[in-house]
Design a protein around this nucleic acid. Structure first.
Lengths: 304, 304
DNA sequence: CAGATGATATACATAAATGTATGACGGCAC
DNA sequence: GTGCCGTCATACATTTATGTATATCATCTG
C-alpha cells in the first residue's frame, strides 16, 4: 500500500514541467529527454497517488493537486540552490556566490556601485542580485542577504538597521518648463499629472495615510516597474515620488512641495548561520557601509 | 569547470549518512546498499567541490563543510515530507496526514483528548504529533500546525489567539503531609524543595522576572523533560509550577501560595496556504475549540 | 489543403546506476 | 591472542534508468 518515497529528482522534474508547461520543454531545460521526463512525472503521480497533469498534445495542464504541491517544490529548488551557494567557496577565502535580494530601486540604482567596489576588492566573489519588490523569503533561502523596507520579525535572522530613506516629490526640469511648478497641494491635485504604481502597494497606502489630501490626484503614467517609473519621471512625463538621495544625483530633477515627505526604514538582513561564511560576511558589511553612506545623503545639502 | 547540478537524491543520502555516521547504517535506513551510498557521497563531494566526510573504518566523520550544508539538507527533508503530507488525501474528504507541533505539556497532556474526538469523527485522518519544546519552524514546513506560546510574527501564517493559560505552584498531597504547606514565599525559599527545568529556559527567566523573590529557591529535581517533571510533582518530590487547568483535573494536587501566578499566551498557527486543505482545516478548528475549552478551565471553580 | 512545427506516446538499444560478493582493516569481548 | 562484528573499498553481474528513433496527433501558416 505505502508507496516508497519517490526520488527527490522527481520533484525537480515536476517543477520544471510545471514551469515550462510541457514535457519537451522541461526536458530541454533539465538536459534530459522527453520520455525520461514523462516517466518521472508518471512515477511521481504513482507515488503521491494523484494525477498531477492532464496530458494533451499541446502540453500538460497542471491539476489542482499539482498546484498544491508547487510551493513545496519551489522551496526545494531554492533550498538546493542555497545549499550549492553555501558550498561554493572555501571557509577562509572570500569566494563563491552570494545572492542578494533588494527592492527594484535600491537594487538597480544604489547597489551596483556598492557591489562594484566590493568585487574589485574580492575578485573571486560572485554576486547574484535579484532586484524585486516581491519579498523573497530569507528563511526559505531564496536569498542570502536582503535589503528590506520592513522590520524583520524573525529570530533566526541577523538584522542591521540602516536608517531612514526619505522620499520627496520630484519632477524633471523639462516638465516644470512646460507645466509650471505647483506651489500648493491643491495646485498639484488640479493641474498636474503624477506618476505612480500600478497596484495599490503598501507604499501607496502609506502615502495616502500620511497625506490624505493627495487622494484624487490624477496619474498620467502607471507601472509596476520602478525603473520604468523613474525613466518616465526623468523624461518629464509627470511628478512622482523619488528617493531623495537618488534625486540629488540628478541635477535636472526639481524638488516640489518640500513639505511633503515620506520615509522608509531600511534594514539589511541575513541568516544567522551565514555570518560564519566570509563571502556573506564581507558582503553584509559592504552593504551596511554603502547604504549608511546612501541614507546620509538624505540631508546632505538639504535645508541649510 | 562548472559541475552539473547534482542529483537531489544525493542530498537525501548525504543527510542519512550525516545522521547515521556510517555508509552502512545510512544504506540500511534508505533501503540502499553501502556501495551505492558511498558512490552518492563521492558524487556529491565532486559536485560541491569539497570533502564532506573524513572516511575511517569505524564510520564517517563530517567535515566542517558537511556541517554547513546540514541545515539545508534538513530543510529539504522536511519539505519533501510536507509535500507528501500535502499530497496525501483528497481535496474533498478529510483524509491524509497532518503534523502537529506543540509543547511537551500541551502535546502530551491536552492534545490527545482533543485529537481523539477529532479522529473519531474523521477515521481517515492520520495525525502526527510532535511534542517538543524546540520550536519547529512552520515556514520550513516541519509541521503543518503548531501550538505556540509566543506570538507568531510572520506574514504567511494564519494565527489564532487562544488566550492565556495560567500556571500556579502545586504540590502533591503526599508532599504536603510530609513537609507541610508553605504559607509565605519566605517559607517556600527556606524550607521547601522545588521541581524545575534543567536549563535556564525562557520560562524560568519569565518567572524570575515576575517574582524576583523566588530567586534562590532550592531545587530537588531538575529535568528538561516535562513529563518527567510532572510525574515527579505527582510523586510528591517537591513543589513546582503546573498549568492550572491540568492541575484541576488531579484532586491530589494542592495549590500553594495562590498569589503567585504565571501566565502563558497561546496561539495556534498554520500555513496560510493550508487552509484550503480539509484535513488541516478541521484539525485547526478542532484544536482551536479544544484549547479554548482548556483555557476556560483556568478559572473554573477559582476564587469564588 | 498541404506542410512545417511542436506536442505526447511507444519500442528498442544503450548507458548508467545499483546490487552482490568479497577482501581488508579496526575495535571489542572473552 | 582469537573470534566476532562492524566498518569501508573494490570487482563484477545485473537491473534499472535513460536516450534514440519513430509513430501519431494537434495547431498554425501560407
Amino acid at each position: 500500500m505505502t508507496a516508497p518515497e519517490p526520488s527527490w529528482d522527481f520533484y525537480r522534474t515536476f517543477l520544471a514541467v510545471l514551469e515550462h508547461g510541457s514535457l519537451s520543454a522541461a526536458a530541454r531545460d533539465l538536459g534530459l529527454t522527453q520520455p525520461t521526463v514523462g516517466r518521472h512525472v508518471d512515477a511521481l503521480e504513482q507515488s503521491v497517488g494523484a494525477e498531477l497533469f492532464t496530458r494533451s498534445q499541446q502540453g500538460l495542464l497542471p491539476t489542482d493537486a499539482a498546484l498544491v504541491l508547487k510551493p513545496y517544490a519551489e522551496t526545494l529548488a531554492s533550498t538546493t540552490a542555497a545549499l550549492l551557494r553555501a558550498a561554493s567557496g572555501s571557509r577562509d577565502k572570500v569566494s563563491g556566490t552570494v545572492r542578494i535580494s533588494a527592492s527594484e530601486v535600491i537594487g538597480t540604482e544604489v547597489l551596483p556601485q556598492i557591489l562594484a567596489t566590493l568585487q574589485a576588492q574580492y575578485p573571486e566573489l560572485i554576486v547574484e542580485l535579484s532586484p524585486s519588490d516581491a519579498v523573497e523569503d530569507l528563511l526559505q533561502r531564496e536569498a542570502d542577504i536582503a535589503v528590506r523596507m520592513v522590520a524583520p520579525a524573525q529570530e533566526a535572522l541577523l538584522a542591521r538597521h540602516i536608517g531612514t530613506i526619505s522620499l520627496g516629490l520630484y519632477a524633471h526640469r523639462s516638465y516644470i518648463e512646460r507645466h509650471g511648478k505647483p506651489e500648493t497641494i491643491e495646485e498639484l491635485r488640479r493641474r498636474h499629472k503624477m506618476i505612480g504604481f500600478d497596484r495599490q502597494t503598501a507604499y501607496i497606502r502609506t502615502m495616502l495615510k500620511r497625506y490624505p489630501m493627495l487622494d484624487g490626484v490624477s496619474f498620467s503614467f502607471r507601472s509596476d516597474h520602478s525603473t520604468a517609473l523613474h525613466n518616465a519621471l526623468r523624461a518629464g512625463i509627470g511628478i512622482g515620488f523619488y528617493q531623495t538621495p537618488l534625486a540629488r544625483r540628478d541635477v535636472s530633477l526639481v524638488r516640489l512641495l518640500p513639505e511633503i515627505e515620506l520615509s522608509i526604514e531600511t534594514w539589511i538582513v541575513m541568516h544567522e548561520n551565514l555570518k560564519t561564511s566570509p563571502r556573506c560576511r564581507v558582503t553584509f558589511d559592504a552593504l551596511v557601509a554603502g547604504l549608511l553612506d546612501y541614507v546620509k545623503e538624505n540631508d546632505a545639502g538639504g535645508r541649510p
